[in-house]
Design a protein around this nucleic acid. Structure first.
Lengths: 318, 318
DNA sequence: CCGATTTATGTTAGCGGTAACAGTTGAGGC
DNA sequence: GCCTCAACTGTTACCGCTAACATAAATCGG
């Protein structure tokens, strides 16, 4: 018992015994067993984090934010990956909850019924991140992708573009990309416009893909004057393609992506994009978990971050 | 007890009771407590993974490999981040070991004495990844960065370049970058050459940084005919700078980076690089952990992967 | 110098499962 | 009809630690 007290810095222990214990622990190479500790104390310093993939740059950045936000709190993130599969999400979640974490941070608002039920019954703080377009279970931290799409549409229209193409991913379970597109369509619709042509691809986002797709869509619809990409990676690929072909950007064709990847600053000209506040989302989510010591699931917070439009150099000045 | 058997699919349970148990578990929303289970069975389905940072693209890719390799094994990775700090590594490691994971995958061969002692005493499989230049504790999976640097030097010399500049990060604890540079120097030394000029930066790798540094070093040493970058990100930045300035690449100046980030395929011309086998390293490491059911720490495996030189378009054909 | 605190250490009973073993039942062999 | 054995279900004793409480030693005001 005294050892337990020394190692957790709890309760009063005389300086001498403390020393002796520390000494002994060191020479023995003793590492306390948190499993037993957690079972006895009903406290677990783990936070479950569930994301769709490591492949999309966005999630490592969110993780970095979570890591940073959890720093100093004694909490440790445990990451699970769903590969954009709702069933896998369910499995991973079950697995996580069986470790009785202090909280769960999970990407997106769309879950299977079973997953939703588990989250609701878990009686721990839940933070759904990235997206605020929909009903959350407990707390929600993210941006409105719908609104982000709409704002981009408005900015594009304001700049005078009219024949607009969309290039994006095929993933049906990427709800955020879907909502962005829906918002974008809505924005155009308000001006009586629709998307003039679209091009989809599967697989990770990469510059080369963006080039190909851009070439394809422009070959098919040479009269497009704007291309909206579902992410910065393919957007930048498109940008490079246009520059290669001597297309005047943003005069002849305007371009925009999404995410605000700082990674890509440094391209010949800067792609218009919208910052998804990835790091902030991670930090904020971590704070919410850390800030709820043992409070039962009372009211969840709703934190909506405002994506900044970064016009870059690929949209005409209106 | 019967419930335990049903939920773990172990031992004989009649079909009817099995049904009843499953039924009850579902209606109650019962999620078994792995903490108790692990304590009782002395089995934990977690694998500790310790990496320096999420910021460097390389590690998310390794993680993706680990995730993939662990798929189907019932093991779950738990990630800890050290920020390239040996002390933090020690802390994170202690934390992890206290959960008695099935194994630990840790980046690098350099650890504090205490960390090394913990790993040695842990009596679980340890896999040190990324780097094979040095003494491992148990298993090691990686590439020789020393040799990678040397090979790059040889390739550059073979192509006829002679006034060679190096651009890299300042991080003293990025041992792999350091070893690459040492190997590179050794390669040059064999031809009686040294690095003609060098330029360092701090902070994450980014295109824009690469541009700046390249401009700086070329302003200072306009007679350089080759630039070796410590990673592809800044290398690509440098490439873009050179193209911007109308510098003939690879005629007037050759360029090379390191990592083989597929992300960047699609730039106007392809940067010479060397693949670090990130994903394979992750997969292999996962397999080693998964493949050692309960075997005490017998002989560790040493898996050295061979980085492929991808000459791209930025080295003259020799 | 004593009772009341305060400080320091020890004791006991779980936490929620699982290993190991102990029953109980029914089917089948002879 | 008795025995054997597999198929099923139950009992008991922990796993290694901590909460809660109990006890012992040191401190202290009056």
């Amino acid at each position: 018992m005294t050892v337990s007290r020394v190692l957790r810095n709890r309760g009063d222990v005389s300086a001498t015994t403390r020393e002796r214990v520390l000494e002994a622990a060191k020479t023995l190479g003793y590492v306390p067993n948190k499993i037993a500790g957690a079972l006895a104390s009903q406290r677990v310093n783990l936070v479950g984090v569930i994301i769709p993939s490591f492949g999309n740059l966005v999630f490592p950045e969110v993780l970095a934010g979570i890591s940073a936000g959890l720093e100093e709190t004694g909490l440790q993130p445990v990451v699970g990956v769903t590969d954009y599969s709702p069933e896998k999400e369910e499995t991973v979640l079950y697995e996580m909850l069986s470790w009785r974490p202090t909280g769960v941070i999970i990407a997106g608002l769309e879950h299977t019924d079973a997953a939703r039920a588990m989250l609701e019954n878990s009686a721990i703080p839940i933070v759904e991140i990235m997206d605020v377009d929909g009903a959350g279970i407990d707390s929600v931290v993210g941006i409105s992708h719908q609104r982000a799409g709409r704002h981009m549409a408005e900015a594009i229209l304001r700049a005078g573009y009219r024949k607009i193409g969309f290039l994006g991913t095929k993933m049906p379970d990427d709800h955020r990309a879907r909502k962005r597109l829906a918002g974008f369509r809505a924005g155009l619709a308000e001006a009586g416009l629709t998307i003039a042509d679209e091009e989809y691809y599967a697989g990770g986002s990469a510059l080369a893909k963006g080039r190909e797709m851009t070439e394809t869509i422009l070959a098919r619809s040479p009269d497009l004057d704007f291309l909206y990409y579902s992410n910065d990676m393919i957007g930048s690929g498109g940008l490079l393609h246009c520059l290669d072909k001597g297309i005047d950007v943003p005069g002849q064709i305007g371009l925009a992506g999404f995410n605000g990847l700082p990674l890509l600053d440094g391209l010949p000209i800067k792609l218009a994009t919208m910052d998804a506040c990835r790091r902030e989302i991670g930090i904020k989510a971590a704070e919410i978990i850390a800030g709820r010591p043992h409070s039962g699931v009372i009211g969840g917070e709703l934190v909506e971050l405002e994506p900044r439009l970064e016009p870059g150099d690929t949209i005409r000045k209106s």
